[in-house]
């Protein structure tokens, strides 16, 4: 049975676009998140392998910025490498995207988890802030996923940075313009499938969604639900 986004206090800016596709919604982090977008999960996984667009707005995320961010994160047990514009995987599945020497963006898991995010949230307060300040990324930015073998070709219609997998390695970050919006693009393959996180100004979410669908049409790309992206990860490999 599908939940109704309108019954929840927290709502993705895209819920109407998704509802119009006959999406089926389920609870994730206080949101009603679209699990499928009008197809069944198997179909949508196949589409996600070719070219799929998914609204990840329900997933956990938070930012920290200030001159002392790297040291503060390290003191909390989070490990962020020294190179900017790179994402660093953490033990609990969270990734820390280092946007600048003094700015980190933490992205939670596809299953709505974010143990490290919770831990840091509990540790941080304005009263004890020392050169490191929290950024409410769940409301500053919308979060989309573009996945599939045609993803880079689609981005070439919207973005002047070469995002092809041979030139843009896993965990690389490009902070640039996508469809004339300031955007953060992070390569984050899921399983064997090429995929990118795309974060932009939350108020432009509907505009961006429509611009992406228009660019995807050439490749038969279309929206997919969260279940499809989770499905790309497949069962955990037992070896390697």
């Amino acid at each position: 049975m599908s939940l109704a986004p309108g019954d929840h206090l927290r709502r993705s800016f895209l819920y109407r676009e998704l509802a119009a596709l006959d999406a089926l919604f389920d609870e994730v982090n206080g949101h009603a998140a679209a699990m499928t977008c009008g197809g069944d999960t198997a179909q949508e996984i196949a589409r996600a392998r070719s070219l799929g667009l998914c609204d990840l707005s329900a997933l956990r995320r938070v930012g920290y910025k200030g001159w002392n961010t790297a040291a503060w994160l390290a003191a909390q047990g989070a490990s962020m490498g020294a190179e900017s514009n790179r994402a660093y995987a953490q033990a609990d599945g969270t990734r820390i995207a280092r946007l600048a020497p003094g700015e980190a963006l933490l992205l939670g898991t596809l299953h709505g988890g974010g143990a490290l995010i919770d831990q840091l949230g509990a540790a941080w307060s304005m009263a004890h802030a020392d050169g490191c300040f929290q950024v409410p990324r769940e409301d500053v930015s919308c979060w989309l996923s573009v996945s599939g073998e045609h993803a880079a070709a689609m981005f070439a219609k919207l973005c002047g940075v070469d995002l092809r997998p041979a030139k843009f390695p896993l965990h690389a970050i490009a902070q640039t313009s996508v469809a004339r919006l300031n955007a953060i693009v992070i390569r984050r393959d899921v399983g064997e499938t090429l995929a990118y996180d795309l974060l932009t100004d939350i108020a432009s979410a509907v505009y961006l969604w429509r611009a992406l669908l228009d660019a995807m049409a050439e490749f038969d790309g279309a929206p997919v639900g969260l279940a499809a992206i989770r499905g790309l990860a497949g069962p955990q490999p037992s070896e390697g």
């Binding site: 800016f13 108020a203 505009y207």
Partner: peptide, 28 residues
């Protein structure tokens, strides 16, 4: 294909449902 970003507030669709005549304010 011109890209002309537009920004909506969280209440945008409620305004439309209430019969608002919308106007541009910057990109919003």
């Amino acid at each position: 294909r011109a890209f002309e970003p537009v920004r909506y507030t969280a209440m945008h669709f409620r305004h439309l449902e209430l019969g608002a005549k919308m106007m541009p304010a910057g990109l919003w």
